[in-house]
Structure formats: C-alpha cells, structure tokens
Simulated scan of single mutants.
Amino acid sequence: MSDSLKQRIDADMKAAMRAKDRERLGTVRLILAAIKQREVDERTTLDDTQVLAVLDKMAKQRRDSIAQYEGAGRQDLADKEQRELEIIQDYMPQPLSAAEIAALIDAAVASTGAGGMQDMGKVMGVLRPQVQGRADMGAVSAAVKARLG
C-alpha cells in the first residue's frame, strides 16, 4: 500500500468536495479532525495503525449512539449515525471472522506462554495491534478471558 490511510482520507475529502457530497464530506472532515486532534495532543504524526485506532474509536462511538438513539425512539438520528458509521468503516480493513480471532488468540497465548488470568494483559498486548479496527476489542477481550479462565 503506497498511500497512507491519512492521505487516502484527505484525497476522499477533496473528491467529496468536488462531487458536492455534503454528507460524506462532513464525516470525512470529522475523521480528519479527530486524527489532527490526536496528533496535536501527542505532538506526533500518526501512522496507519494509530489512524485505525482513531477510526475504531469513532466507529464504537457511532455504534453506542445508534443504540441510544434507537432506545429513545429517534430513528432519524440513529440513521444519520449509521450513515457516518458506514463511511468510517470504508477506511477500516475487513473484519476478522470468529475462526481467525480464535486462531490469533491461540497464537498469542502460545507466544506469551500465558497460563492464566494474570497473563491476560500480555496476551491482549500481543493481540491488540493484530485485531485493531478488525474486531470488537470487547469481544476479543471476552474470548481471551474465556480461553485463559
């Protein structure tokens, strides 16, 4: 992959401007603002893995908002969040299957020599970069707990 994820998002913002796609433009600007905010806060330039972490966080926020809006009977707002979530997910890699996650967990447990719950942090430390943006970290954490428990 020659272009960085950030460059691709930036190019998509320009394309959305030219196409006068206001909805996509708004969401892409939100993504770029979140990336820029983290770069300013940490005084660094984010690489693709860190950009994925920002996207993952934004996607989780959208999923939480959708659940809250639907619970409150505000389908109009839930639909808007759903459209933003779909645009955010365009930049994320394909999600891992349950079998792929299980295989990664087994490999992480083997490589860290984890023997029980006290080794959960080590296992998650190995897994996080491999599954970031490709799986729900809460579900991965629960699966690791079940495997170690």
Rank of each mutant, 00 (worst) to 15 (best):
S2F: 12
S4H: 08
D10H: 06
M13D: 00
K14G: 03
A15S: 06
K20M: 10
D21Q: 06
D21I: 02
R29N: 14
R29L: 13
I31D: 03
I31V: 04
L32I: 03
Q37T: 08
Q37S: 03
R38H: 05
R38W: 01
E39N: 11
E39H: 12
D41R: 12
E42G: 00
R43V: 06
R43D: 08
R43S: 07
T44M: 09
L46D: 01
D48L: 06
D48W: 10
V51Y: 11
V54A: 00
L55F: 11
A59L: 15
Q61R: 11
Q61W: 07
R62K: 14
D64T: 11
Y69H: 14
G73F: 12
D76V: 01
L77K: 09
A78F: 08
D79H: 13
D79C: 05
K80M: 09
E81C: 02
Q82P: 09
R83A: 03
L85D: 02
I87S: 00
Q89T: 03
M92K: 10
P93K: 12
Q94E: 14
P95K: 13
P95H: 14
S97T: 15
I101D: 01
A107L: 08
A107M: 06
A107C: 08
A108F: 14
V109H: 07
G115A: 09
G116I: 04
Q118D: 04
G125V: 04
L127V: 06
R128L: 06
A135R: 07
M137P: 08
V144E: 12
R147Y: 06
G149C: 13
